[in-house]
Nucleic acid binder design. Structure first.
Lengths: 160, 160
DNA sequence: CCAACTTGTTAGGGGTTTCTAACTTTATTT
DNA sequence: AAATAAAGTTAGAAACCCCTAACAAGTTGG
């Protein structure tokens, strides 16, 4: 029955791992002209055969255009997902670094793990909150500076 | 080599799913006198056989004390992990409800997915931030009320 | 007490993601 | 151009977590 309807291939939601691959591919394609299996493997901390098999999955699901031994590209759908995950990552990381004063390495690492659980809706709300705090800081009281001092005043700050 | 050292059984970190089970068991054991397979299954949205097999794993890893057809208990180790995950859940959920004004159902759902990625360190920092904001609100300016109004003033609030 | 129901377990299988070992293809070097 | 190195692929296996179907154990009601 479903087989007759052309665009019903991908009802299944993407896994967090698939989202990770799309985000990495998105990022790499901004940094370099071509995206290589080797680079994806290095970024994700997996071996090359793992990447190869995932690329097949992503290709079958219409998220990337890929033929073996050739370069790969994100499709429109893959691009929009990769971009969205990347946006979640940046927003969460900014919250961790700018508001909570967590150092950049840890922020990056934890944003990476939290970015799959947060919805578009909640992320938008977080963006608004960050903007709101920014506005507050501009108009004199500088809430975040106060929080920074509040954190620092407790001597058990093993990092900033 | 390691086999000779008694307490080196579990170097492998727990998976997010294992943490979920421990958290649910922790929560259920507070709510009721006994924890049942059926209740765990219902909370986690899985079938009973799935729970049974996970209980074996958790038992083998010394996180619960469990014999088939008998009641189960968390060990000290399992208890401390379950409690910690539960704490992360509550803090994250409070952030989502109290600061970002996300409704409780969504907050609960997303806290559940984010709680595994956040470190103890970052969580402590988040707790401090929530306390700090609380203090700010007490001393007149009521930052969070202002943010609540800021959110409301945008008419596209499909929820609060 | 026996039937019916609920609860829990085994057995067996499937999808996802990872790995190592061995191979092929492409790129570089001499 | 042939030899070597690097990049990529298959094949096959394992860990993890889920499922259904069937069976076993406990509980309840006639």
């Amino acid at each position: 029955m479903e087989a007759l309807i052309p665009d019903y291939k991908d009802e299944k939601p993407l896994t967090a791992v698939m989202e990770d691959y799309l985000e990495i591919i998105f990022t790499l394609s901004r940094e370099k002209r071509i995206v290589r299996v080797r680079d994806i493997a290095k970024r994700l901390g997996v071996k090359m055969p793992t990447v190869t098999s995932m690329l097949k999955v992503l290709n079958d699901r219409g998220l990337i255009a890929y033929e073996k031994y050739e370069f790969l590209d994100l499709t429109d759908k893959g691009l929009s997902i990769g971009r969205e995950i990347n946006r979640r990552h940046r927003v969460l990381r900014n919250f961790l670094t700018d508001i909570l004063k967590i150092n950049i390495e840890r922020s990056d690492e934890e944003a990476c793990k939290m970015e799959h659980g947060i919805s578009h809706f909640t992320l938008d709300r977080l963006v608004k909150f960050l903007e709101f705090i920014q506005d507050c800081s501009l108009s004199g009281s500088s809430l975040i500076d106060n929080f920074g001092e509040y954190i620092l005043s407790e001597k058990r700050s093993e990092e900033i």
